[in-house]
Design a binder for these strands. Structure first.
Length: 597
RNA sequence: CGGGGCGUGGCGCAGCUUGGUAGCGCGGGUGCUUUGGGAGCACUAGGUCGCAGGUUCGAAUCCUGUCGCCCCGACCA
């Protein structure tokens, strides 16, 4: 490809819309353009990158025995109603774009494809003899994100590889799950990104085991916790740990103290010389359940800890046997709207009486009380007295009405003690989720009635797995992990071009002739070469080359008359002057060769 | 959804407080010079100041509404 024909438009200024380095560089380098919030055009350079990633993914998936397919993007509501996800995905903060066709039928734009694939599988797969099957596709997904951001990182339209496997039993599912785990490691390492595999919550998709693949980067949206030895790694939503011990609070008896205006843990601590771990804080939350019920929760947790709402949601779902749509803070305004009187927020205790809820218009009249281990394990502590400006000191659970059962609803955090080795403390890192694998089990096959006939002639629901990779997100994550002040440094395997042959001065015929010759030789040997034949000053071409991040550069310049060129490696910023034949041989030796193009 | 900010040539921004008929840098075009790290000079094209109302002799500027975009947050009261 010739740069003069590439529609290469690079920007000198940082576009105002872009916050993080990878987003800025992709826009400046002419890789992407925003069309509207969270929706981007992939320009020709970007499309080359996407295609290279896609090719790697296809090769690896194909060699694992998976079958490529292409599923529709328009999904009938009926299918999603059968799986029970239509309401959750469309109502309220629902993430699915949806519309009505001219007959008034409801249609959703696919955010994920479990429903469609399961319905197809149930029609085509009838016998255990056909199993296992793993189907995958690479195509655009639509999600109406609450807040799209960071370019392709969280966009509303994005390219994803998703795979769904079908099995006759759980053991077979685990085999494929493990296989895909290693396929993913190959894919990410071939794409030149460093990833960490972490235990994850299975979230809205549902199911049992699940693992996320994170590209480590400071700008990542996810917090991951790892042990120093690397044995343990988990998303914060899922991470478990042993909290640091509480500082004992010793008091001969319980007493009430005036604590005027000390509404927060930190105010209470500084005014009374306390440690946050000596306090039980009480948080009131309103859980909105999938059937529309509104259930107030009273959460007790140690003052130095925070509530993990994913863990909380999971516990509630298990206890109530129904999904939780949303968790909202209980505020003065919400109490008021229920016709209830205000509560002494900041001074609440775990024994807050249910009577404060009586007469609520739509809420349930009693709290579900959930106590974290950290609070339940305290022998003697401080908590609110349920009266404005008063706290109780030296209380114990017995005097508050009995020992609660401790549950794990806390966020693990850096510094906590590792379960597998108490001598190690958890570390915090940020990550960008680019892959997620799940053992779905029979959730969808049951709800969608997808079954096969087993060896005994009995109908049985499929065991399913699903496996995703954010292709467009991966492309940007690679930039986030591989760049410097000058621009992008693409990993060679996914770079839009492998080599950029820069003719320093296009007016100089010797340079021009030599540049063309090198370019043709590289191309005929199967290398992916770009020829910068633009009538620009050399500096412009060098800057652009650095910005768009082509890993190798051959500069045909002032030594062209003696047949010498410079060979530059973008990442290392290494330059050496050598004969052009030597440069060509070195490139051919360094780069994997494909068929000539 | 809550809070904050911003919409002015293709891009980045100033002007708005204190109303008087729109400007800077980059980019584009032409010419001359230059030619190895985003060149210099000259000329030039390009904007109903997001949109709709209102106030005023007069609105980018003030008021109202509306649309769009960006950032932070969306359990620790």
């Amino acid at each position: 490809m010739r740069a003069s024909r590439l529609m290469l438009v690079t920007l000198r200024d940082v576009p105002a819309e872009a916050e993080i380095a990878s987003h800025q560089l992709l826009v400046r380098g002419g890789f992407i353009r925003r069309i509207t919030s969270g929706i981007y055009a992939y320009l020709p350079l970007m499309w080359r990158v996407i295609n290279k990633i896609t090719a790697i993914v296809q090769e690896e998936m194909d060699s694992s025995g998976a079958l490529q397919t292409l599923l529709p993007q328009l999904h009938p509501a009926e299918l999603w109603e059968r799986s029970g996800r239509w309401n959750g995905y469309t109502a309220g903060e629902g993430i699915m774009f949806h519309l009505k066709d001219r007959q008034g039928r409801e249609i959703g734009l696919g955010p994920t494809h479990e429903e469609v694939i399961t319905s197809i599988a149930s029609e085509l797969l009838r016998s255990y003899k056909q199993l296992p099957v793993n189907l995958y596709q690479i195509q655009t997904k639509f999600r109406d994100e609450i807040r799209p951001r960071f370019g392709l990182m969280r966009s509303r339209e994005f390219i994803m590889k998703d795979a769904y496997s079908f099995h006759a039993n759980e053991k077979d599912l685990k085999i494929t799950y493990e296989k895909i785990d290693s396929v993913y490691r190959n894919i990410f390492s071939r794409c030149g990104v460093e990833t960490v595999a972490v235990d994850a919550d299975s979230g809205a998709i549902g199911g049992a085991a699940s693992q996320e693949f994170m590209v480590t980067a400071d700008s990542g949206e996810d917090l991951i916790l790892t042990s120093p030895d690397g044995v343990y790694a988990a998303n914060q939503e899922k991470a478990i740990s042993i909290p640091l011990p509480a500082k004992p609070f010793i008091a001969k008896k319980t007493y009430k103290l005036k604590t005027p205006g000390q509404k927060s843990i930190s105010q209470l601590c500084s005014s009374n010389n306390l440690d946050p771990s000596q306090i039980v804080k009480v948080i009131l939350i309103l859980a909105i359940l999938e059937d529309g019920k509104e259930q107030p929760l009273l959460i007790s947790i140690r003052g130095d800890q925070e509530v993990n709402d994913v863990k909380l949601t999971n516990i509630l779902t298990a206890r109530l046997k129904k999904g939780v749509t949303n968790l909202l803070p209980i505020t003065k305004e919400r109490l008021c709207a229920q016709g209830l009187s205000d509560l002494p927020f900041g001074f609440l205790g775990p024994d807050l009486n249910n009577s404060v809820l009586s007469g609520a218009k739509t809420w349930s009249n009693s709290f579900i009380r959930i106590t974290d281990h950290t609070a339940a394990d305290l022998e003697s502590f401080i908590c609110g007295a349920n009266t404005e400006d008063e706290h109780l000191f030296g209380v114990n659970w017995l005097s508050l009405g009995g020992n609660p059962k401790g549950l794990d609803i806390r966020k693990a955090k850096a510094g906590d003690i590792c379960h597998h080795d108490p001598s190690q403390n958890l570390l915090e890192r940020r990550g960008i989720e680019i892959g997620h694998i799940f053992q779905l089990g029979r959730k969808y096959s049951n709800s969608l009635n997808a079954s096969f006939t087993n060896e005994k002639g009995i109908q049985e629901a499929f065991w399913m797995g699903c496996y995703g990779i954010g292709i467009s997100r991966l492309a940007q994550a690679a930039v986030e992990q591989n760049h410097d002040k000058e621009g992008i440094i693409w990993p060679i395997s996914i770079a839009p071009f492998e080599v950029n042959v820069v003719i320093a001065n296009i007016q100089n015929s010797q340079q021009r002739v030599l540049g063309e010759k090198i370019y043709k030789r590289l191309k005929s040997n199967g290398l992916d070469a770009l020829l910068d034949d633009r009538n620009e000053r050399a500096g412009v071409k060098f800057k652009d080359s650095d910005l768009i991040g082509i890993p190798w550069r051959v500069v045909v310049g002032r030594d062209a008359d003696s047949g010498q060129v410079e060979l530059v490696q973008r990442g290392r910023r290494e330059t050496k002057l050598l004969d052009h034949e030597a440069a060509i041989s070195q490139l051919l030796a360094e780069l994997p060769q494909r068929k000539p193009n």
